[in-house]
């Protein structure tokens, strides 16, 4: 095959690396810390999770740094590039499926569980006056105001969609070799993502303080917060990736035929984008 011949027929195999084992140690610390924390053992949990968190940061910078250095040394040929692309593609597929299962939860609670509960003999109702409506009124009928689509959420849709445009434009500039323009585009994307996150925090804050919509507000509150919360988490992860890409753009790492890192992050950002669109339609709007 011509591809493998270009690199002397060798597929690049990385040297032994301490980072994978360190990363799992970090996750063990975080897991044990998390399990202790939710049971009220805050002090030991804090130490464990703190150490785990620091280790995660250390490992991520070391591991990603190794990959970037290898890339700079030019050890990745076309064949390695194909592996990375397939890998990122399947990773995003698994993320899509994760969100699908959360949307499945929303569908189940809203269209199956609530009507079913409402169809029972009223003696078995969760609370007096329970009706098959969405949003449900909350446990024991505690009052809250449901989210409204055409305020912050609509604005956020606009912001996130335009950030999808800027990152795509940046990728196009890189393939044409316009590094400065691409750097600006990534910067703009980060800015838009930051505004999105800030507005999302504001929205959560308003939900708790003014709408009295909390995690405990029945299945409406639960599904609302798990879907938007996990999306927000993924935006944050995307922001970290974009920051790395921004730094690499500044250093001039990317060129017309070496920009997989950029491409992968743009894929991820589009995924986050599309999930938000679904959220806007099914959580806020309908």
């Amino acid at each position: 095959m011509s591809i493998s011949q270009a690199h002397g027929g060798h597929y690049y195999l990385p040297k032994p690396s301490p980072y994978p084992a360190l990363m799992s140690t970090a996750l063990l610390l975080l897991g044990a810390g998390g399990a202790l924390a939710v049971n009220g053992y805050v002090l030991p949990a804090g130490w464990l999770a703190g150490a785990g968190g620091l280790l995660v940061v250390y490992v991520l910078s070391g591991w990603v740094g190794d990959v970037i250095r290898e890339n700079r040394r030019g050890v990745y040929g076309e064949k390695e590039g194909v592996s990375f692309r397939w890998g990122m593609g399947w990773f995003i597929a698994s993320e899509v499926i994760f969100f699908s299962s959360l949307f499945g939860v929303l569908f189940y609670e809203r269209n199956i569980a609530v009507p079913w509960l409402a169809s029972l003999n009223s003696h078995y109702s969760p609370w007096a006056g329970f009706k098959a409506v969405w949003p449900t009124s909350g446990p024991a009928g505690a009052a809250f105001t449901p989210e409204h689509a055409w305020g912050i959420p609509a604005l956020n849709t606009l912001i996130l969609l335009s950030s999808g445009v800027t990152v795509t434009w940046g990728l196009q500039q890189i393939t044409k070799g316009h590094r400065r323009a691409a750097t600006w585009a990534v910067g703009a994307t980060i800015l838009l993502g930051g505004v999105f996150l800030a507005l999302q925090c504001r929205e959560f804050y308003l939900a708790y303080t003014e709408l009295h919509l909390t995690l405990g507000s029945g299945v409406y509150g639960a599904t609302f917060f798990i879907l938007t919360g996990f999306h927000g988490l993924h935006v944050t992860i995307g922001m970290i990736m974009l920051s790395v890409i921004f730094g690499r753009c500044l250093k001039g790492h990317f060129g017309p035929d070496n920009h997989f890192g950029f491409e992968a992050v743009s894929w991820y950002w589009h995924f986050v984008d599309v999930v938000w669109l679904m959220l806007f339609i099914f959580v806020y709007w309908l």
Binding site: Y108, W116, P139, G216, A222
Partner: peptide, 17 residues
């Protein structure tokens, strides 16, 4: 631990989920 009702009918959820 966080007061949600995914699996609890008391908040409109469902253990069958």
């Amino acid at each position: 631990h966080f007061g949600t009702h995914f699996f609890s009918a008391a908040g409109g959820g469902d253990p069958l989920l």
